[in-house]
Each structure stands twice: as structure tokens, then as C-alpha cells.
């Protein structure tokens, strides 16, 4: 395994070193370098420190594991692979993600899963162990977002305006969602056994990574949110 001390490197140097090497990498002393692992395939990158914005952008099969928090736009437009964050993440995580998996132990900032999409066998998955900020799943068009609400803060499991503009995919919240206001183009219902079966593998994977019992988690009430129909915004502006 190649070990890189990034403490005195700018993002171009660091990314050039990652690109020119082969095999797994361990990065230490990371201080805000952007685009780490962008577009990378088939390797494992372990990061200590605080990686910069757009970590794993366009990721294409590699696995990135962060021992700490990550900043904004984690997994921007990622296509395949896995990002694991042993901490919390900033805003706009999984922006336009179209495949692969993003596991976050703690909380997510604003706009997690914005513009997430799916096609054929490409189904992106985002599991947030803690709580999510406002505009969760904004414009979601596909894929699966799961929020477990495990952090202790007094915040609700998701802040204001979740699912605004959602028109595809599924969003699971481990909550009865009594106080969560949803836009009128989407519907939330209590998860059925079939719904939970669909996500049990992802919740199990979360527990394998960060601990906890997935059976116990799946025993709590879940709400599933989906758009009302194929074209929920019909005639919002023009007849389409």
C-alpha cells in the first residue's frame, strides 16, 4: 500500500500522485485538498484528516474511506464504487449521483442526494446514519436515500423542505414523520415488509461498517416517500 503524507501538498500534486500510482493508497495529513479520487476505478483509498470538497467526484468503482468528517459535494456525480465516511458530511452530498454507494456514519448537511438519478441496473444508494439538513432529496429522480436518525441532537431527522421537486426514486426515513412537512407532489407512507426488505441489505451494510444491529433498526417505524406519479409536475408551468 502506498502511503502519502498530504500535509504540504496542494490538490493538484496530491491527485497527480494518486493517478500515477497503482494499488491501494493511504493518505494522512489531509487538509482540504479537493477532488480526491475523482473518476477512480478499482482501488481503495483510506484518508485521515479532512478531505476537501468534491471528494470522489465521478467515482467509477473505487472505494474511499474517510476516518473523520468530509466537506461539501462528496460523491458528486459518482457512477460506481463506494464512499464511507466515519463522521459527518457537508452540503450537497451525492449531487447527481447515478450509481454506487455512499455511507455516512453521522449527519449530512443541506441538499443531500440532490438530483440523484437511476437507470437500468444503475441504482445509487445513500445511507445517512445521523440526521439530514434541509432540502434532502431535492429534485431526486431515482435511487435510494436512507436516513437512520441515530445522532443525539435535538434536531428532527430531516430539516425543512425535504423532497422538494422529487420526481423519482425512494426516500426512507426511520421515523413516523408526524412533524415533517412534505410537498404536495410526493406521498409518505409507513414502510411495508416489502419496502424494508428492499433496504435491509443497505442497513446491514451500514451496521457492518459502523456497528449496531440492523434487525433492531429495521424494527423501528420507517416512512417511505415517493413521488405521486410519473409526472407530478404536469402543468406546473406549461402543459407538458
Amino acid at each position: 500500500m502506498l502511503c502519502i503524507d498530504a500535509s504540504h501538498m496542494d490538490y493538484q500534486q496530491l491527485n497527480a500522485e494518486i493517478k500515477s500510482s497503482s494499488g491501494d493508497i493511504s493518505i494522512t495529513g489531509c487538509f482540504g485538498q479537493r477532488f480526491i479520487g475523482a473518476g477512480l476505478e478499482h482501488r481503495h483509498i483510506d484518508i485521515s484528516g479532512t478531505p476537501g470538497n468534491a471528494l470522489g467526484a465521478y467515482l467509477n468503482g473505487a472505494c474511499i474511506e474517510v476516518q473523520g468528517n468530509a466537506q461539501d459535494a462528496v460523491g458528486d456525480t459518482m457512477n460506481a464504487g463506494r464512499i464511507i465516511v466515519h463522521g459527518s458530511i457537508g452540503d450537497a452530498a451525492g449531487y447527481a449521483m447515478r450509481g454506487g454507494e455512499l455511507f455516512v456514519e453521522g449527519d449530512a448537511g443541506y441538499r443531500a442526494g440532490i438530483h440523484m438519478k437511476a437507470y437500468g441496473d444503475k441504482i445509487p444508494v445513500m445511507v445517512i446514519g445521523g440526521k439530514a439538513g434541509s432540502f434532502l432529496g431535492e429534485y431526486q429522480a431515482g435511487g435510494v436515500i436512507i436516513v437512520l436518525g441515530l445522532s443525539e441532537s435535538s434536531r428532527p431527522i430531516v430539516s425543512n423542505f425535504p423532497c422538494t421537486g422529487m420526481h423519482g426514486g425512494k426516500l426512507f426515513l426511520r421515523s413516523d414523520c408526524k412533524n415533517i412537512l412534505l410537498p404536495k407532489q410526493v406521498t409518505g407512507h409507513s414502510a411495508t415488509v416489502d419496502d424494508l426488505t428492499e433496504i435491509s441489505g443497505y442497513v446491514q451494510a451500514y451496521c457492518e461498517l459502523f456497528g449496531g444491529s440492523y434487525e433492531e433498526l429495521l424494527h423501528s417505524p420507517f416512512t417511505v416517500i415517493t413521488p405521486d406519479n410519473q409526472n407530478p409536475y404536469k402543468q406546473m408551468y406549461v402543459l407538458n
Partner: peptide, 8 residues
């Protein structure tokens, strides 16, 4: 604006 700036 970024956690990295604080960590430094």
C-alpha cells in the same frame, strides 16, 4: 467555510 481551515 471549510472544516479544513479550522483543523489547520
Amino acid at each position: 467555510s471549510e472544516e479544513a481551515a479550522i483543523r489547520v
